[in-house]
Design a protein around this nucleic acid. Structure first.
Length: 304
DNA sequence: AACCCGGGGGC
DNA sequence: GCCCCAGGGTT
């Protein structure tokens, strides 16, 4: 590296040492996850990223394995009965993701000849692929530079560089800018940094009980240096209600249909919630979302 | 920007 | 019981 590019790098880098040390730590500490194996495919990476949206790794892994066994390529999922797709999704949660993943597979077949695109714009245009997932697929499937800003990266940067316990309640332009400035310029290192910073947040720099003693950059962490001040946005974070909500009722309906091998009459779904009006509202919503259908006899089932 | 959308496990 | 989790889509 020339002196000129070296000084540029140093000036650009918010905290000298952060990136190389986290990347070096990752070389040893990386969890052995199937979508990281050498024989991974872009499709497998994409599927993992969609499943990992709001669902922890330990619950995704077995479903991912079975999923890739059954539908190893986008064309396979595109051709599958939607009922099979929703059953295979199981209890990962947010089942609309399963519908979007199948729509995504169909779009890949139609627009890209069955091959996962490596272009960020093309990825973003696919159903269920947002800013984070497009960047992640580019980095992890294709080894390309992209700025990955997930909840882990936001927390790691907030702590090490910002000196705060957590990021803002929702991602800000300042956070994206900081992440962009932190990401190395070359493809290979940027892709490693993306994976490494996420991993650090997932297993060491965790939200609840961070393991600072095991952190490769504890000595340069601004949050640790400041004495671990509490989250200044705590009063603004709303924890989502669960008991008695439509989401809980919808989940019970989906679980009942997964357990059934034939269309289910409305009467057998009554215990999905205490309030019949709410149950009907949720059934209507699930139909609206394309997650369930109603036959001539009024019984509910998954789409064919 | 705010809201909706599952489900489970750690503490 | 509370909080968090490799977010996306809609309004």
């Amino acid at each position: 590296m020339s002196p000129v590019s070296s000084s540029r790098q140093l000036l650009r880098e918010p905290a000298p040492g952060l990136v190389p040390r986290v990347v070096a730590w990752f070389e040893d500490a990386a969890r052995d996850l199937p979508w990281r194996h050498a024989d991974r495919t872009p499709w497998g990476v994409l599927v993992s990223e969609v499943m990992l949206q709001q669902t922890p790794v330990v619950r995704v892994e077995p479903v991912w394995r079975e999923w890739l066994r059954r539908w190893p390529a986008p064309a396979d999922l595109a051709a599958a009965p939607t009922a099979d797709v929703l059953r295979a999704w199981g209890r990962l949660g947010y089942p609309r993701r399963a519908l979007r993943l199948q729509d995504c597979a169909r779009a890949i077949v139609e627009r890209h000849d069955g091959t996962v695109p490596d272009d960020e714009g093309a990825l973003l245009a696919l159903p269920g692929i947002g800013e984070y997932t497009a960047a992640a697929v580019r980095a992890f499937a294709f080894g390309r530079r992209s700025v990955v800003v997930d909840t882990n990266v936001r927390r790691v940067l907030a702590r090490t560089l910002g000196g705060t316990a957590l990021g803002a309640p929702s991602p800000t332009a300042a956070e994206r800018s900081l992440a962009a400035d932190t990401a190395p310029l070359d493809d290979a290192t940027a892709a490693r940094w993306a994976a490494a910073s996420m991993e650090l947040g997932a297993v060491v720099c965790t939200a609840r009980a961070p393991r600072c003693h095991a952190c490769p950059v504890a000595d340069l962490c601004a949050w640790r240096a400041a004495g671990h001040p509490p989250d200044e946005h705590a009063h603004r974070r709303r924890t989502q209600a669960w008991h008695g909500t439509d989401r809980q009722v919808r989940g019970r309906v989906m679980a009942a249909l997964r357990a059934a091998d034939a269309p289910v009459p409305r009467a057998l779904l009554a215990d999905s919630g205490p309030d019949p009006v709410q149950v009907d509202r949720c059934l209507g919503g699930l139909v609206e979302d394309g997650l369930i259908e109603q036959d001539e006899a009024g019984r509910f089932h998954f789409p064919a």
